[in-house]
Design a protein around this nucleic acid. Sequence first.
DNA 1: ATGAAAGCGCTAACAC
DNA 2: GTGTTAGCGCTTTCAT
Lengths: 354, 354
Amino acid sequence: MARVTQADVARAAGTSMAVVSYVVNGGPRPVAEATRQRVLAAIEQTGYRPDGVARALVGGSTMTLGLIVPDIANEFFAELAAAVEQAARAAGRTVLLANSEGDASTELDLLDTFLQRRIDGLVIVSQAPAAADRLLNRAKTRHVFLGAAPESAASIGVDNFGGAVAATRHLLEHGHSRIAAIAGPAGDHVAEARLAGWRHAVAARPTAGRVRFVQHPFTVTGGYDAALALLNPSPLAPGGPASGASIFGRSGPAGARVRPQAVFASSDRQAIGLLRAAADLGLSVPDDLAVVTFDGSSISAYAVPALTTIQQPIAEMAELAVRQLIDPDPQPLRAVLEVGLVVRRSCGCPPAHL
Amino acid sequence: MARVTQADVARAAGTSMAVVSYVVNGGPRPVAEATRQRVLAAIEQTGYRPDGVARALVGGSTMTLGLIVPDIANEFFAELAAAVEQAARAAGRTVLLANSEGDASTELDLLDTFLQRRIDGLVIVSQAPAAADRLLNRAKTRHVFLGAAPESAASIGVDNFGGAVAATRHLLEHGHSRIAAIAGPAGDHVAEARLAGWRHAVAARPTAGRVRFVQHPFTVTGGYDAALALLNPSPLAPGGPASGASIFGRSGPAGARVRPQAVFASSDRQAIGLLRAAADLGLSVPDDLAVVTFDGSSISAYAVPALTTIQQPIAEMAELAVRQLIDPDPQPLRAVLEVGLVVRRSCGCPPAHL
DNA sequence: ATGAAAGCGCTAACAC
DNA sequence: GTGTTAGCGCTTTCAT
């Protein structure tokens, strides 16, 4: 008892394969109701299941979408993956998932694999947007970049600059003037935009005095290290990760540093590390240190204290991306979505509940 | 300029398609070195990329593995997905991912979709193990269950009972006697095993007095609600989620309840909710309340205080599962992996660093 | 060592 | 309304 094929069904129903195909696909030609019933019965009886592979070979479409992210274990990408999968499933598509591990050459390999698999389209958070775009265009495979993207490609981003401004302003409104920032890695598209937003907002308050920022990876450990650099009364020895001077000039002689009253963290993960560092240093958040962060992944809601954060519209991004990939005639897409400030406890606003 | 096929390469190289196939696959027949080079050059020049779909149609294997989990946004499953993808990639396979949303009928639909796609094998955290197993067996598709599984199927689990015992004993060793438990939903295979482990350990200390447990979902909210039920001085009105009596009898008249000194939480997510509830109630962890949890997902390390937890060997599970699916002649598999206690701060042990 | 050709299971012309 | 048949791109026997 090998695989049940259309031919088996046709035989059982006493019809031709074409008719079976017509009823399975509801077209392209009409079928008499009586015949239809016989075919349906035969399908039921034989346990026939259409073969997607053969279908894809002739039809051209695999009904499969690819998703490549740096690290699915990161809650932000995990939530994104969940949203993409859901949107794809709603549209009858399946999702091929892969991690680039933040590595450009791994990403390119993955791309190659996906193209061999003939995915219909790809959603990608890319480490090498230009190269990826070239490859995908050559293969005529639809794709949309999330975050960093070449000018000419379809992309969906969020207003990183505006979000960072809003976050920082909220801290300003709490009356803080010394607002430091934990930025993402130098050179990172997203990280730079958020840093610029913080700079912009903080520059509006010239009384801000010594404002500092440090650049660290978008990780919990990165946030922890960053926080230590920012909060430690005795400055660490030089040679560590980049530590930026004030935008108004150097932040003063080492040792004479004043502790920031507030910190804008460029990502939730970093904020988690910051929270831990603050606890280790005996600093209470938000009493001794106010914090606002960026991302709005679920982890921000569960932290203690709950994090006030700039929330990215993950579901919207996913839906937009999937729609773009399966739209019969897609328009050029270059979306920049709005982000919202979600006020919780870490900024010093009054408590709310889970 | 349509798709570049093997025929194009053959033409460019001045050979037959068969030879192209031989060099691409390194067999099954030998090819003269000179010819090989010509073919390679032709491939390079035409930009040929083998078509995985056609290959799968004739070859039988899609080189694709499926993964179905209840919710990829849950960090435990996200970490699992990352590990499975990595193991699959290392073995040259690609992963088709889907969320069952904890719903059995969605899961069955997904199964159907994956089967149509002719996946080579499936890793599944199932809501309906028996039905899934039947379906997969009928389709002759290899599969391994993680967690709940039918007797006869390949499965990988962890020692939930033993882990819960170890967690509870650790609390006992801290000198606590009133150790409550936050259990998972009643009827859940995994939840029951962990609850039984707690029961077993706690029974060894008859002085334990009023030991209580409550059953709530494996979610942050579930943990929060559970904690409220357990910790609130004034008992909530009845009618809420199941609240278990002591194994030594009823836990005493309402209102006369004594607050537990420690809590064993059945999952990290619940523990996060518990931490938040404790904070809301002004209870300090571990000083007022010691906590040990189960799962060991990254979130447990980042919580404040860091959670002492029973760690599941996720990478090992993933590797074992993938190996089982691609092993040329697989042995029946019914693995129960050991779990380890990771001591951090929440149990009351001395602090360590990130 | 190489080539010709038969399918893999299906869809969609194209006939009737 | 239904049947026949030509591929989709590839692997692999079977000749040569």
